[in-house]
Simulated scan of single mutants.
Amino acid sequence: MSDDVSYELLGLDNVLLPVGDLGEAVRFYERAGLPAAFRLDDAGIALLKVGKETPGVLLRLDEALDHRPPPWASPRLWLEVPDARSAARALAAAGITTLEEPFSTATGWTVEFADPWGNVIGLTDYAKRPELARRAPR
Rank of each mutant, 00 (worst) to 15 (best):
E112I: 00
P70S: 03
A127S: 15
L65I: 03
R129N: 13
P102Y: 01
P130M: 03
A46I: 01
K128E: 15
T98F: 06
G56P: 06
A46Q: 08
R68P: 01
E101S: 13
G122F: 00
E112C: 14
P137S: 12
S104M: 01
D125A: 13
K52E: 14
I121D: 08
V50C: 14
G33F: 07
L59C: 03
R138L: 11
L58F: 03
R134N: 13
A114G: 10
A46Y: 04
Y29K: 01
G118P: 10
W117I: 01
T110D: 12
Y29Q: 12
G51P: 13
E131C: 04
E30F: 09
V26S: 09
D3Y: 07
D62E: 13
K128D: 14
A106D: 14
G20F: 00
S2H: 10
R129M: 06
E63I: 02
P69L: 02
E80T: 04
G33V: 10
V120S: 12
T107C: 11
S86A: 15
A94E: 12
A36W: 08
A114C: 10
T54G: 09
S74Y: 04
R31Q: 12
A25E: 01
N119Y: 10
V111H: 07
A36G: 06
P70A: 03
Y7C: 04
P69I: 00
T97F: 01
R68I: 00
A92I: 00
V15A: 15
A114Q: 03
D66H: 11
L91P: 03
V81W: 05
G11I: 01
E100Q: 12
V81D: 00
V111A: 05
S74F: 00
L22I: 02
D13P: 00
I45F: 12
M1G: 15
A25P: 02
D42T: 10
S6P: 00
V111Q: 09
W117H: 09
V19M: 02
R134P: 00
L123A: 08
A133S: 07
V19S: 08
N119S: 11
G20T: 06
A133D: 03
G95L: 07
G56T: 05
E24T: 04
L47A: 11
R89L: 11
D42L: 10
A114M: 06
G11F: 06
A114K: 10
A36P: 12
G118F: 14
A106W: 05
P71N: 02
E30Q: 15
D3G: 13
L132C: 05
Y7E: 04
F113E: 03
P71T: 02
D66L: 01
L40I: 07
P130R: 09
W117P: 14
A84C: 06
L40V: 06
E63A: 13
L17C: 11
R31N: 13
G44N: 03
L34R: 07
W72M: 04
L99M: 08
P70Q: 02
A106C: 05
G11Q: 05
A136L: 14
A114E: 07
W72I: 03
